[in-house]
Amino acid sequence: MHPAFSVIFLTTLIGAGQGLFLALFTGQFYSTVELVEPQPASFYAVGSALSLALLVGGLAASFFHLGRPERAWRAAAMWRTSWLSREVIVLPAMMGIVFLYGVFHWAGWTQPFIVLGEGTLPIDATFVLGMLGVLVTLALFVSTGMIYASVKFLQEWHSPYTIVNFIFLGTASGFMLAAAYSALLGNHLVGFFGTWAVIATLLGLGTRTASLMRNASIKHRSNLQTAIGIRHRGIVQKSQGFSADSFNTREFFHHQSPETLKLIRVMFMVLVFPLPIALVLLAYALASPTLPILAFVVQYIGLIAERWYFFAEAEHPQNLYYQQIS
């Protein structure tokens, strides 16, 4: 597929936004049960704003993908069948929850209305919003992932890995951002978020590596024989039927050399996984307030490369029909 920057930014930005929200709420949960020290309302409010900004940024990027963005509202219509439609519904829902979550924190509407677990777990509005937010975040990960994973003839995508990678990589980048955010504020949650970020990154490393291995040995079900229905090993296209490029030659192929692909793969495997982990560990060791920020930036750049590769790697069977000009 052709890696379009609109969808690369859409998926990486909202992934980070979703992950950041998960991180914020994880922090809140831990502080509620007093495993970490509590943070001021502004921490959650600004954090939510940051998450929201990422979600809005992702949404904005997605508009560049649309031919007719002014009609984007129509996209919610087919939620019964279309994962894209579902994403279009879930994304604003999440944005709304994140917004409310931040507003409630900021306004201090955090009076518990019920206390569970023998007084250890006070439930306030932000907690409910947070729980809802977690569900919506997961739904959004699944919707986004399923947009790709549900296209069965894009065999590189048609796998649970697509969804778990979106979840782990989004979560990793979100926690990494939370660690950077904490480092910037100078609070004590750097290590907490950093640890979770490393865990998510390691999980992501596992699933992404597994998906790369799976895709490397994938046997494409379509070939020229099935494409034109002629059973002969020596089939070569001589003419695609037109002399210039077209939508079909542009949209479904990256037009890069295998070497470029390999380079991008090595690059993201370094930038997304070992390097941020090393930076976090180093930050831990040096108690550096800036290295976590660098870790996030490095990982996010890596994720752009990862997402580029995600698209480029997927071989669309329609390309079998568009190979040669004569």
Partner: peptide
């Protein structure tokens, strides 16, 4: 049509 191209994918 919003031109999202998803159908072509």
């Amino acid at each position: 049509c919003i031109g999202c191209k998803y159908c072509s994918w």
